[in-house]
Design a protein around this nucleic acid. Structure first.
Lengths: 230, 230
DNA sequence: CCTTATATGTCGCTG
DNA sequence: CAGCGACGTATAAGG
């Protein structure tokens, strides 16, 4: 339950899935309650220069010439060695338990909303099943259109080329299933909040329909939306 | 060049690509030289609960009822709002310039080893060229099998579906080249230290051979391996 | 516990 | 700057 913050001139060496070395310099070390260690510089984004993920154990020792040395060992062979030349700051803080993060607006929500309102994607579209299983993974939504034809829907927050590839793979497999293709080939709809031009071109080239989804409008249609508001 | 470390009871709201909310609790706030902000709890791994990536600007203000409020605005519409109830610690530290990280990876090494020992992938396989160029990028290894047929090899540390797609694209292009297909179609080998079931299904469906590579055994075969040990 | 898909992914390279 | 691939990816969800 305690975080320790250390600012120190240090040198860091990691050996595990790769080897990495940080020359001697001043950095911020954060040691969390589970013994995990983060080595931050004052730039970059949230990713530390080096780190050790929990579960792991921190041992504080010293080298022959009297320098402080931290050794962090992980679950596998991973080791992080921190040689400390000078400590500029060292403090510990009790944080208590964190209530955790609440997120809103990720793909899952979009899928839920579209599952409830499939007709926003195409007139007369009805839901057959969410997460329709195939040998290479689940199709986000399997639907049926007004003529009774099967329609596979792939949902992404941002529509990029990968998503079109994914839907193409599904369609390839689905169109081998006589149960689905009885009345005609399975169609594809690529739904996203925004679709990149490149992805749109590829989709249309493959006969896939693109649908830009208005998240806020969808949420407005959904009476249960208030549950997710705060 | 200065990092600021703050421990405070705070509530955090992010609005940008998604919305996220952190209820009031004690957390560590790290403010880096470029104004970027990290909100850490004492658990999890190196990823903060919430953050703002550079470039961004931090404005320190106060609400109507006198509480301290930080507003961090990013390059787009992203905003991070931190409402501070109580500051338990606040210190700033000059880190100087970080000399940067030195990495020594594994994936390139794997390609080198397989280039030296292509026969471990298939009997009688010989190397024609590494990084064989195509219009959409280089094929990791271009080989020839015992019958003189061309074989394209895609190497990954972890064999996932993307890699199969990549190799498929290469094969599609290569098979349009009469120089390569003279004796028959170009075959594909998907080589990785581990191949996911999903990727294996897709590969086999497309007539691509899967090869699981034993990195340690390969390294053992290589007399030059000592050069890279330290 | 293993497998799969998502991510405010981030990071680095190349055209 | 965009696009693409790799990452010590992390992380959550589902079988």
């Amino acid at each position: 339950m305690v975080v320790r913050l250390v600012v120190a001139r240090c040198q860091v060496d990691y050996a595990g899935r790769l080897t990495a070395h940080l020359p001697m310099a001043t950095r911020v070390l954060m040691i969390k309650a589970d013994g995990s260690v983060l080595v931050h510089s004052d730039g970059g984004s949230y990713k530390p220069l080096n780190w050790m993920s929990p579960p792991c154990a921190l041992r504080e020792g010293s080298t022959e010439d009297g320098q402080v040395e931290w050794t962090v060992t992980g679950k596998t062979d991973d080791t992080l060695r921190i040689l400390i030349e000078e400590v500029l700051h060292d403090s510990s803080h009790d944080l208590g338990v964190d209530p955790g993060l609440q997120k809103d607006g990720v793909e899952k929500h979009l899928q839920e909303l579209l599952a409830e309102h499939p007709a926003t994607l195409a007139d007369g579209l009805t839901l057959v099943r969410r997460e329709f299983p195939t040998a290479i993974g689940p199709v986000d939504l399997m639907c049926r259109d007004a003529e009774g034809l099967s329609v596979a829907v792939e949902i992404k927050r941002r529509g990029e080329i990968d998503g079109v590839e994914q839907l193409t793979r599904y369609l390839e497999l689905l169109n081998r299933d006589p149960l689905l293709t009885g009345r005609g080939a399975v169609r594809g709809i690529f739904a996203a909040q925004a679709i990149k031009p490149q992805a749109r071109v590829l989709a249309e080239d493959r006969g896939i329909t693109c649908a830009v989804v208005d998240y806020d409008a969808l949420r407005g249609m959904d009476d249960d939306a208030e549950h997710r508001l705060f």
